[in-house]
């Protein structure tokens, strides 16, 4: 703990920090328990950042246009959040309001000043005043459709056997862009399923690595349940096996709800809503049919 409080606590002189770090470092190696406490620390730091950014920038109002529609947003707010507040739908699979954006799915891409940007990671700044942003154009939608197709071929998305089918955001975007067949070759990767938890199943075949679960899902004590494992094309979502076994049904339910695909499934209940009455059966994804 001493090591952490020196990093994140009250300001200390640099010399003191160095000394403490030297003293504490060997102790950390011997004691393995503080790893759990590390997990508690991380989200606290993250939420602080979000709040700080908000407080600093609440004052300024930015006026901009999306596809010709006048919009108003706050300085520092992400373009995606501002668009939704103004009733403009920018599709996204990895973003949630008040969560630090990951920019991992790239479906929210927009064009500003002729440049393609991810709307979730691009904040509104003073430079955005009177800016014209392109969103729902044939050119951008074609790229978005291609991204949806890539996501379909690089996993094993067999919709007919998926519990999330009809409520799946990836599938809904496939419908929105009238994807009849992906233009890319199917990869058929081999991925593992974790089903040892009584309340939750993690099917990596359906995972699109949006990292929502890693960023949002914590247990009652604030410990992360999901984490990233490996890098590059081997990157996958890993689950804390011990935490997963004792995970409450409420948290499992939340994890399933935030997952844009069917990678996280709450056990013991599936296919509850009949075909034709599910979320995206009759109504396309967009404003009025968001999470």
């Amino acid at each position: 703990m001493g090591f952490f409080s020196s990093l994140f606590g009250k300001k200390q002189k640099p010399e003191e920090v160095k000394q403490e770090a030297k003293h504490e470092a060997p102790k950390q190696e011997v004691k393995r328990e503080p790893i759990v406490e590390k997990k508690v620390e991380t989200p606290v730091v993250e939420t602080k950042k979000v709040e700080e950014i908000k407080k600093e920038n609440m004052s300024d109002t930015i006026k901009f246009k999306i596809d010709g529609k006048e919009c108003v947003g706050k300085n520092g707010q992400s373009i995606l959040d501002a668009a939704i507040e103004n009733g403009v739908y920018i599709p996204s699979l990895c973003h949630m309001k008040d969560v630090i954006p990951a920019g991992s799915c790239r479906i929210c891409q927009i064009k500003m000043n002729g440049r393609t940007m991810a709307a979730c990671t691009t904040p509104l700044t003073c430079d955005c005043n009177n800016l014209e942003i392109e969103n729902d154009t044939p050119e951008i939608n074609e790229v978005r459709k291609a991204i949806v197709e890539v996501l379909f071929v690089e996993g094993n998305h067999f919709c007919p056997s998926c519990e999330k089918s009809g409520c799946c955001e990836l599938q809904a975007l496939g419908y929105k862009y009238a994807m009849l067949v992906p233009r890319f070759q199917y990869a058929f990767p081999q991925r593992e399923i974790f089903a040892a938890s009584p309340n939750l199943m993690l099917d990596r075949n359906r995972c699109i690595l949006c990292k929502k679960c890693v960023r949002i899902i914590k247990d009652e004590k604030g410990r992360s349940v999901f984490a990233l494992k490996n890098r590059g094309h081997k990157l996958e979502i890993n689950i804390d096996v011990d935490l997963a076994k004792t995970l409450s049904p409420a948290i499992a339910q939340k994890a399933m709800e935030i997952c844009p695909v069917g990678a996280i499934i709450k056990k013991e209940k599936g296919f509850a809503v009949p075909i034709g009455s599910r979320k995206f059966d009759l109504k396309p994804i967009g404003i009025g049919n968001l999470n």
């Binding site: 379909f152 094993n156 067999f158 919709c159 007919p160 056997s161 009849l180 067949v181 992906p182 199917y186 058929f188 990767p189 081999q190 991925r191």
Partner: peptide
């Protein structure tokens, strides 16, 4: 004309593709 998920992406039989 490819009709149905199996013709388009292998479908249920393609579950063996990783094995």
């Amino acid at each position: 004309v490819s009709v149905g998920e199996c013709a388009i992406m292998g479908g249920l039989p393609a579950l063996r593709n990783g094995i």
